[in-house]
Amino acid sequence: MANLSQADSALPQMRPGRFRLPRGEAWRENLYGYLFISPWILGFVLFLAGPLLVSLGLMFTEYAGFKKITYVGLANFEELIKFDIRFIGSLRVSAVFAFWTVSLAIIISLAMALLLNQRFKGHTFFRGLFYLPAAVSGVAMTFVWAAMFEKDYGMFNQILRIFDFDRVAWLTSIEWALPSYIIMRLYGVGHYMVIMLAGLQSIPDDLHEAAKVDGASGLALFRHITLPLLSPTIFFLMIVGMIGSLQVFTEGFMLTQGGPARSTLFYVLYLYIVAFTERRFGYASVLAWLLFLIIMGLTLLQFWLARRWVHYESQEA
């Protein structure tokens, strides 16, 4: 959709409603407006805002899910800061995981998108193919990966054997368990690639042509035209990727449950264990809200940093 160019702005701009009823009927208009959005608001309050507020209150309590709720003041926060080794460890695991998956996914998808942006035979086929894994993600795929990582017959060790390397205990060794999850995540890199490709295709051809006439080399073209014009897309992928990978849970829950030696104890997995295995809902709420603050903080930080490196055409016009 050409008219919705991404150069528009990072934040959607305030647009006045185009349609206006006659002035005297403003009350009617408001009424209709609210009627239209009321089912959404109802769901929002009941199943998002409400539970969120409750969990906000739970932070100051001890609660095992039964009748009794004990108010404990700031004890949960104290425990978090002073005593919880698992918390620090899980924060580290998630940070390492998020950093590597997002940066590798962006680099790989950029390279793939640059390749697929060439007009060669079959580029639509390859584009469709590369997105496929993102569509079938989920529980079934996670178990397929477990089979691929299997120590004796798994695909990865079969390949290593061909090249005469030693077997690797992928999901069962402390060094390799987390990298295994990163590889697993990168299987869905096609998702990034499709978006990257759309960003590339929205760059007008004449800019490249003009720069070529001025004698710019391929690398200079990439550095000074493609990359700046692609920066809003890269920025979008960084935000979405970061949020998604900090919340990773299902794979870890199903395959390693945090082991070996907590090397794959992702933050949300730890949160789940605290809440549903140890049944400490108060403390789990503290963990959940902290993660929320971390994610919001990082997102705002990225928005702030974005002013230095993300290029929006409309700012110059």
Binding site: M14, R15, G17, E29, Y32, F36, P51, A275, F276, F292
Partner: peptide
């Protein structure tokens, strides 16, 4: 209709993404 809801909606979207669903499970 007359809602200047763009910015609020965007914020709601971001917040909705950032909220760990695990925080919502218990309540």
């Amino acid at each position: 209709y007359h809602f200047s809801a763009n910015r609020a909606l965007f914020l709601y979207f971001l917040v909705g993404m950032a909220v760990p669903t695990q925080a919502l499970m218990v309540p």
